[in-house]
């Protein structure tokens, strides 16, 4: 135990310094908090507008989509809070920070992940949390061990999946230094996809966000299982219980991409 604590000490030291430095720019920090909430509210408004214009979309009512949006947005914001900065790997490369990581006796990926933390994203998470709580209240959910377990699995796996997506992006950005925006397709595209009912997706999207980056498992599938709704073609609702498998796959993909990226960076070939 003491040994594990000692091994964590370097990461704690760096993270604590990040927290201190963010709090020291108080005015900016508050602005960022407010801005993050505003942007979250606007994204929520977009969904509300759409479900307000029609009765339901893809077999989901507004009340039901609240749950999907809530889980997806909350878990994405939490992942963003912890590992969101991995998404700007080219900045680390250009500033030479990455080379400095190589000179320290810790794994490079862990150093990158713990090199920063964006507290302002806590504010962003409140929007998702609000939507989730509202969704849990207004939907008719049979509260028993099964539904609680399902919700807990969804939340944990959602964070793991989104965090993995950020790391995947970092790994691929070793190849895309000038084209880092490409990873937005599955990082922010993935977040957007996760807030939607997967039943509206064209086939190509089902392949990409149903299985390669399994965003359907982050919120949509667990919610269909929770509310007893029918799933989508290729994505039956019982898959909601398979979120841990999707999370495990996401982690595997992320670690492979990261390894592959680092090998490329060090010039060891593909």
């Amino acid at each position: 135990m003491a040994d594990a604590l000692a091994r964590l000490a370097p990461y704690r030291a760096v993270l604590a310094s990040r927290v201190r430095s963010q709090r020291s720019y108080r005015a900016n920090f508050v602005l960022d908090l407010v801005g993050a909430v505003l942007i979250g509210l606007m994204e929520f408004t977009e969904i509300w507008v759409l479900f307000h214009a029609v009765d339901g979309i893809g077999g989901f009512t507004f009340a039901q989509i609240l749950l999907v949006f809530g889980i997806a947005d909350l878990t994405f914001s939490l992942a963003d809070l912890v590992v969101g900065h991995c998404d700007s790997l080219p900045t680390y490369v250009r500033a030479g920070t990455l080379d400095v990581f190589f000179l320290r006796p810790q794994p490079v990926l862990l150093q990158l992940i713990t090199s920063d933390i964006s507290l302002r994203r806590l504010a962003r998470a409140t929007v998702g949390l609000g939507a989730l709580v509202a969704g849990l209240v207004i939907n008719d959910i049979a509260w028993d061990a099964r539904s609680v377990a399902l919700l807990a699995i969804a939340l944990v796996c959602g964070v793991v999946m989104f965090a993995s997506v950020f790391v995947t992006a970092a790994g691929l950005q070793f190849f895309l230094v000038n084209g880092a925006e490409m990873t937005n397709a599955f990082v922010y595209g993935g977040r957007y996809a996760a807030t939607q009912p997967a039943s509206v997706w064209p086939k190509a999207v089902v392949v990409v966000f149903g299985f390669v980056f399994p965003m359907a498992f982050a919120a949509y599938l667990p919610v269909t299982a929770l509310l007893g709704l029918p799933g989508a073609p290729w994505l039956p609702s019982w898959l909601g219980w398979c979120a841990p498998l999707a999370a495990a796959w996401s982690v595997t993909l992320a670690l492979l991409c990261w390894r592959w990226g680092v090998r490329h960076y060090r010039g060891a070939g593909g």
Binding site: P10, R12, A13, V14, S17, P105
Partner: peptide, 12 residues
């Protein structure tokens, strides 16, 4: 000074 403190922790 804080950079030194963090680096000391990093090197254990």
């Amino acid at each position: 000074r804080e950079s030194f403190e963090i680096l000391a922790t990093i090197h254990g």
